[in-house]
Design a protein around this nucleic acid. Structure first.
Lengths: 122, 122
DNA sequence: CGTTATCGACTACATGTGTAATCGAATACG
DNA sequence: CGTATTCGATTACACATGTAGTCGATAACG
């Protein structure tokens, strides 16, 4: 089992999931928009992810190329599962009900989910 | 806007959402099963929640009776929304797809969600 | 070849979090 | 009435996290 990914680390992972391998500078550049971190910050986060064995680094001359060891789908599955377990007793329908109450479901969403469910029953 | 509720604090909140008002000792007793915290730990968490104005305390003789200031539904809505935004671009259908892939949807779940959606369209 | 930019490694430091221990006041028990 | 228990408040302390700065080595530039 891999260790916890913090919020800031998650931002780094998103960059690596979008494309990899990348150097620290690449990652920093991709995150510059949203987060405005210094390159040092990005390097620290990469080191921590490396220590947690959530990414791997391959040496390329003087620098490293980083790549994810954990797939985005695995991460997303874990996080979704945790939320469901913590807040909804592991059941999805209360979540759907909750989101409906928040008006976070568009007609398109509803149609899409219905199609998905129909697929599942088939 | 209220502040962040940590994992440990969330456990305390669940006790208070289930019943309130409660004394620190009551809360500790209810959490004894799952977490096995010392009473001091529970008191610290209550103090922190109080400082964050997530709960309120009403004095009752020498001790306090604690009650939530933030409803469970509000908390749950916030957490669900954050997860959806962070991992699914704010859309629900990819989450459903994800959970389906994990086999976390029983036939009952599917039926229930379909009923919910039908309701929403009406 | 000398200077500057850059690399990874190490260090820093405030704040949040988990998990209590201690303390002085008050109360309950005997 | 004296002692043990309990209360809330204050303090403690290690580890996680966000956010860098510094340092010694090296590479790129002029």
């Amino acid at each position: 089992m891999h260790e916890k990914i913090s919020e800031a680390e998650h931002a780094v992972m998103e960059a690596l999931w979008e494309q990899s391998p990348l150097t620290a500078a690449d990652v920093a550049e991709r995150l510059a928009a949203g987060r405005g971190w210094s390159i040092q910050t990005v390097k620290t986060l990469l080191s921590r992810l490396l220590a947690k064995e959530i990414i791997a680094a391959e040496q390329d001359g003087r620098r490293f190329l980083y790549r994810p060891l954990v797939g985005r789908d695995v991460y997303v599955a874990g996080e979704s599962g945790k939320l469901l377990d913590r807040l909804f007793g592991g059941r999805l329908s209360p979540l759907v009900a909750q989101l409906a109450k928040q008006d976070r479901l568009s007609a398109d969403d509803i149609a899409e989910i219905e199609a998905l469910l129909k697929e599942l029953k088939a």
